[in-house]
Design a binder for these strands. Structure first.
Length: 468
RNA sequence: GCCCCCAUCGUCUAGUGGCCUAGGACACCACCCUUUCAAGGUGGCGGCACGGGUUCGAAUCCCGUUGGGGGUGCCA
């Protein structure tokens, strides 16, 4: 075990890696790295957790993607909550023996009835002094003392809670298994966690945890509750409504660096006037004290803009490499054997300056690898019925068939010359050729595309279109 | 119901009592560039929730109101 501060990251078992979790992980990681501490990954599994191995691997893969790697010495884990089952029970037993906890045999229904009768909400401490011992069906409850608790939070400062508003909460269920709250605290103790950095939703439960630390004779960790990530309705991000799985952004061609950078600007901003900054600077500058107090909207549009910037920062080679998974995916629009890596590489620079995500790349250049690109009928009608369009198409086809040089520049000059004869401006003359060759009115720069496509194929497509 | 947190352009933020006539980014709009679409450049639109204090002076400090969110289980 290393000697520095120990930060724990403990995602709850939702089955996927949440963007909110990713941000919290990044906060913990930045701090652990800068302070020479440790990032402890703990899987909050339960007996019922399904697909534990698969889910754990998913978390580890997603963490690796955003730069938090297992092979880094600052990374520790994963640990599993269930490994500490004995410690959970031992802690409960100690609390009971010290009188800090007591057994209660009331059922949920009975508690509700009593609450209704007395007009008070929740459990009223009925069994506090009944001297009950453990037995099946009885829960162990924590005896919340009189007074108040102040949680010292690095993000928010001191937060006061009056004990009269905290009911005697359950530590052990009627079947003897520990509640999450207890397990969580005991795990943190066992792992010598010094800093708990997590989402704001946990703040109201923190006084309970702090009380547990104290009752167990230990100094509580440093707390830091970071603001929630919300949707456009200002509600906590949920899987049902929102696109929150990190894996999904990964699959859609977002660059990890862009995701990381964007996530870090939610609730915090790098010093200086630049918000696109490398991780090395984030790691150096990030401080919990500077984190905002209010929830932040996860704006996919801004993420996408960041992603575009990061794509443009790539070298052409790196861009081509990053595109590979998307060019060879199963759902690619062209037959796999028609793909030509050299042609793609030739077109890469013009694609790179246009794309905001990698997933949109195949759709931009698909016409190059398709045997017969689907023709947008509407666009075709409109384009070819324009004055002079038909003549330009026919004459350009002939000119291209006999062109001595085949280069973007010559192709451009040739077409413009033909267009001029028919009184068409450059852009106008280009339209029929573009639709005839690519099937669409929009796309990457025409002449570069024609150049890459080659004379034979271009002339074939033009001739076919001209005969329509 | 009770408890807790929060409040600067539509969004993310800078701002820690005078440098604020409130700065930047995304989005949006216009123009330029241009070979369609982008990218890039220039400009524009747009905000301190409200009401009281404190102070010579408040986006900044205090109180209240309103609004939003979260928590409150023998869920994790």
């Amino acid at each position: 075990m290393t000697s520095g501060p120990r930060f724990r990251f403990a995602p709850s078992p939702t089955g996927f890696f949440h963007v909110g979790g990713a941000r919290t992980a990044l906060y913990n990681w930045a701090l652990a790295k800068r302070l020479g501490g440790t990032f402890v990954l703990r899987i909050e599994d339960t007996d019922e957790a399904r697909n534990r191995a698969e889910w754990t691997q998913g978390i580890i893969d997603a963490l690796a993607w955003i730069g938090i790697r297992e092979e880094d010495p600052a990374f520790e884990g994963p640990y599993f909550q269930s490994n500490y089952a004995a410690a959970h029970l031992a802690a409960a037993q100690r609390l009971f023996e010290a009188g800090a906890a007591y057994y209660c045999d009331l059922t949920s229904e009975q508690i509700q009835e009593r609450a209704k009768a007395t007009g008070a909400g929740g459990y009223d401490g009925y069994s506090r002094d009944r001297g009950l011992g453990p037995a099946p069906g009885r829960v162990l409850r924590f005896r919340v003392p009189d007074g108040e608790t102040t949680v010292f939070d690095l993000v928010r400062g001191g937060v006061d809670f009056d004990h009269s508003t905290i009911e005697d909460f359950v530590l052990l269920r009627g079947n003897g298994t520990p509640m999450f709250l207890l397990a969580n605290v005991v795990d943190d103790m066992e792992m010598h966690i010094s800093h708990v950095v997590r989402a704001e939703e946990h703040l109201p439960n923190t006084p309970k945890q702090q009380l547990l630390w104290q009752a167990l004779g230990r100094r509580p960790p440093v707390w830091a509750h970071v603001p929630l990530l919300v949707n456009e309705q200002r509600k906590k991000l949920s899987k049902r409504r929102d696109k929150v799985a990190v894996e999904q952004y990964w699959a859609e061609g977002y660059l990890a660096e862009a995701m990381v950078n964007y996530l870090m600007t939610l609730g915090w901003s790098p010093p200086g006037d630049q918000e696109i900054v490398p991780w090395s600077e984030i790691e150096r500058d990030f401080r919990l004290e500077d984190v905002n107090h209010s929830p932040a909207f996860f704006d996919v549009k801004k993420l996408t803009a960041f992603n575009g910037e990061y794509i443009r920062m790539l070298s052409v080679e790196d861009f081509v490499a990053a595109c590979q998974p998307f060019l060879h995916a199963a759902d690619v629009p062209w037959p796999a054997d028609r793909f030509d890596a050299a042609k793609f590489a030739a077109l890469a620079p013009v694609v790179q300056s246009r794309a905001n995500t990698l997933a949109e790349v195949p759709g931009v250049i698909d016409f190059v690898f398709l045997a017969d690109p689907e023709l947008d009928e509407h666009a075709w009608e409109k384009t070819i019925s324009a004055p002079g369009a038909k003549e330009v198409l026919i004459e350009t086809t002939e000119a291209y068939r006999h062109l001595p040089d085949w280069s973007a520049e010559v192709l451009k000059e040739t077409l413009e010359a033909v267009g001029e004869e028919h009184g068409l401006k450059k852009g106008k003359a280009q339209a029929p050729i573009r639709v005839a060759v690519t099937g669409r009115t929009v796309g990457p720069p025409l002449f570069e595309a024609l150049d890459v496509l080659g004379r034979e194929e271009v002339v074939r497509r033009l001739t076919m279109a001209a005969s329509m």
